[in-house]
């Protein structure tokens, strides 16, 4: 079944407490190469049948209106993944 993957991230200028806490833990475990971490959300929308342009457009709209909070988040990726 084809899936539409939607990735949502906090806007770059918004504080990401989650990413900050993880970034703090990494060096303690010896992972010292990473300057910063930002945590996002991945959604998978399953489509029964072919993903038409119209369905993809709907997914984009859903991503902008429901899956993300436009006040603090950006939709950074909407893509079709066929299995």
């Amino acid at each position: 079944m084809p899936r539409i993957v939607v990735d949502v991230m906090l806007k770059p200028e918004i504080l990401d407490p989650q990413g900050k806490a993880i970034a703090g833990a990494l060096p303690r475990l010896g992972f010292t190469s990473f300057e910063a971490v930002r945590q996002g959300k991945r959604f998978e929308l399953f489509v029964d049948g072919e993903v038409t342009d119209e369905i993809l457009a709907q997914a984009r709209e859903a991503a902008e209106t429901l899956l993300s909070n436009p006040v603090i988040e950006d939709v950074v990726n909407v893509e079709v993944v066929a299995d």
Binding site: P17, Q18, A21, A25, Q39
Partner: peptide, 11 residues
């Protein structure tokens, strides 16, 4: 602990 931010207890 650690805000439960990654997973509860994970850090």
């Amino acid at each position: 602990s650690y805000g439960d931010y990654l997973r509860a207890g994970a850090i």
